[in-house]
C-alpha cells in the first residue's frame, strides 16, 4: 500500500518524502478535525447527566 503510493509520487526521493510528510499531516488533520470529534461521543465519557434521554419523562 505505502510502496504503491511511494511509487506513484512524482519527483526524486526528497520531493517524495516531503509530499509524504504533507500527506501524513493532512490525514492527521482530517482525523482530529472531523473523524475523532464524530467518534468521541460514541465513548462513554460524555454521560455526566442524570436525565439523559429522559427529558420527555419529566
Amino acid at each position: 500500500m505505502y510502496g504503491w503510493i511511494w511509487r506513484h509520487l512524482p519527483g526524486n526521493a526528497w520531493v517524495r518524502a516531503l509530499i509524504s510528510l504533507l500527506l501524513v499531516l493532512a490525514v492527521i488533520y482530517v482525523l482530529f478535525q472531523y473523524v475523532f470529534p464524530w467518534a468521541e461521543p460514541l465513548l462513554p465519557f460524555n454521560d455526566v447527566t442524570v436525565n439523559e434521554g429522559m427529558a420527555a419523562v419529566r
Binding site: 492527521i28 482525523l31 482530529f32 475523532f36 467518534a39 468521541e40 465513548l43 465519557f45
Partner: peptide, 8 residues
C-alpha cells in the same frame, strides 16, 4: 488508535 487516544 494511538492518535485517537492522544485526541481523547
Amino acid at each position: 488508535i494511538v492518535l485517537f487516544v492522544v485526541y481523547v
